[in-house]
Design a protein around this nucleic acid. Structure first.
Lengths: 347, 347
DNA sequence: TATCAACACTATAACGTTTTCGTAACCAAA
DNA sequence: TTTGGTTACGAAAACGTTATAGTGTTGATA
């Protein structure tokens, strides 16, 4: 009951392998009779060409390698589902590699896939990679003629196609919203500096303040340590944020660079009996189920992960099909949208 | 700057391809001198054998195909991350296929991967597949000598390895918990009947009631339509649940078969001014971020998706390495754990 | 001086395709 | 009857590996 091959069909029908292959491809070289006979047989026994053999022969796999830092993560899964959708439509398969925010896993995963398994990469660099600022694995891959599309976490020093979220603008709009809602002391809950998107969102925060003639105050910026994001560290995150709120009773608006921070801030506020949105308004970045189901529901900057994934896949596949691996490269900016919910509107 | 192959090394060093291959494999047939020379060259230019060629030659790909109904879904991503962890440790790659709960996508995705791309499947059948009760694609795959490990959504009529959650027992424990907490009128929020896990959880609900000498009452069981789970249908879900609560003011406990239902129920209760947990206690199935960050935080039945994924990968890889594709098959039951939070404890 | 190992390689086949080139067999034209 | 052109197929190479089976050279033995 093993897989049917051209060779087996050939043996069975007493013709050559070439004849079988050509028949299945409706080549006029083969007589109508033989063609029909072969096709009937192939159909009957459900012949399907071996993908691996085709990949070897064609030197292309019709497969995209996607490397993400984490999979138990709403935003990244939306991106993957966007990628998968487009890939599937165009006959491509998707291989997923997880870096788990580790530089080494990112590198080995890429190496493993780059040796013939895939035609190109779509990836978002790990936190550790950004920290080390070591991108030799990316440049090497590109130099070997394998295209890469970078998404979300941008790496300015690498030249390739990119699809990024408009983090700066998204943050700016969020903070402007808080300002028009009457907030005067807006805190920023963000990550450590080495995370690029965190930096950009911080920039947007500053811009919005500046535009509105409000001074940027260092002490309203809370840089949460990376390890607070790890599983089981929710307590420490909470303590940190609660402490901040306690020490800064004047804060009437919070812009958080992700859902988790925003939700935790809301929880802390409740503990301190500060009403949301009346006394404190909150906006988070990244729109996931968490925001939708929170109480009060959270106003967020939606990132359109699906479109981002779709766009990334489109760009990569276009390059592959056109066999064009050279500059110029493009950078697509996916805009964000402010989804207003209860955490900002005083009903 | 194209990929280095044995042939190119051979040409460069003026030896045969065989010599290069053997040298790299430290064969004693080759003189120390030549061996070193070849290895030095290979290392310098970073030679890596082509995975596709190896796959073709060995007739195994060291790749697992994972088919899941949805990727923007906490539970499934935890499973995938468990699979990926084990797979990676054992030198396997993971290809992901999404069925999006569609029978057809499940079938085509499997067909595409089955033609040489992977060595075995790990999959959870789509909702539509369960509804159609058509599993020919699974039996055919197994008959062709490709092993399958089914997870979560069990399919009794298919004989193969399985890793399932103890849905019945998990539900039973949850409902027992509500009972010991003093609830007397416990409602069940569940899915339509054709979803296997829904059925099992309903069974656990009944068992717990029976054990406690409480009559099962049809009108306390709410079967939410499948389409309410779709993106953007949160409103309708809410209306439905709210209506139920309004019509059944006596309900003092709710067991929901997933996080979404539970959270929506809590939201509805708040609208109706019923205090949680004092007047109404809620437990949900599936432990995700939603439950953790909800207000009040939700008591849930944790499914240990990671362990489930790990186990599934272990079973599949074991079969592959032992080249044993025949019965007996095993069914591993992953136990659940009740994670108690604010929605059940009256502090 | 023929014989035989041992050594250090090379050639070849195979995995399953596709494609280019070659070639029998037939018929028509010169 | 030779030449030329179809028709309908088969042989072979190639993709990049690995494993099996040669093979030429050397040096030692009988």
């Amino acid at each position: 009951m093993q897989k049917l091959t051209l060779k087996k069909i050939a043996r069975e029908l007493d013709v050559s392998i070439s004849t079988v292959s050509k028949s299945l491809k409706d080549s006029p070289e083969i007589s109508e009779d033989t063609r029909e006979k072969v096709k009937a047989f192939a159909k009957l026994y459900n012949y399907r060409p071996n993908t691996i053999a085709l990949s070897l022969k064609n030197r292309k796999t019709k497969t995209l390698g996607v490397i993400i830092p984490e999979i138990v993560h709403h935003f990244f899964t939306t991106v993957v589902s966007g990628i998968e959708k487009v890939a599937n439509e165009k006959g491509y398969t998707v291989i997923i590699g997880l870096s788990n925010e580790s530089f080494e896993k990112e590198v080995t995963n890429m190496q493993k896939l780059a040796n013939g398994s895939i035609d190109g990469f779509i990836l978002s660099v790990s936190r550790e990679t950004q920290l080390k600022n070591d991108y030799h694995h990316l440049t090497e891959t590109i130099d070997h003629g394998m295209p890469i599309v970078l998404f979300d976490r941008n790496v300015p020093e690498i030249e390739c196609d990119k699809v990024v979220v408009d983090d700066r603008e998204g943050a700016r709009n969020a903070v402007l919203k808080l300002l028009t809602q009457g907030c005067e002391h807006i805190a920023l809950l963000t990550t450590e500096d080495h995370v690029n998107v965190g930096k950009l969102r911080t920039q947007g925060y500053k811009e919005a303040l500046e535009e509105s003639g409000i001074a940027y105050r260092e002490n309203l910026v809370v840089k949460l340590r990376d390890e607070f994001n790890d599983e089981g560290q929710e307590e420490r995150l909470m303590t940190e944020i609660e402490l901040f709120l306690r020490n800064n009773p004047g804060v009437d608006g919070i812009f958080a660079v992700n859902e988790k921070y925003a939700l935790t801030a809301m929880k802390a506020a409740r503990k301190l009996d500060r009403d949301i949105p009346d006394q404190l308004k909150v906006i988070g970045f990244t729109d996931g189920d968490l925001s939708k189901f929170a109480t009060p529901s959270l106003t967020t900057v939606s990132q359109h992960g699906i479109q981002l994934g779709e766009k990334a896949a489109e760009i990569l596949i276009k390059r592959l099909e056109e066999n064009n691996f050279d500059p110029p490269y493009q950078t697509v900016v996916v805009t964000t949208r402010l989804v207003e919910r209860e955490s900002t509107s005083s009903h």
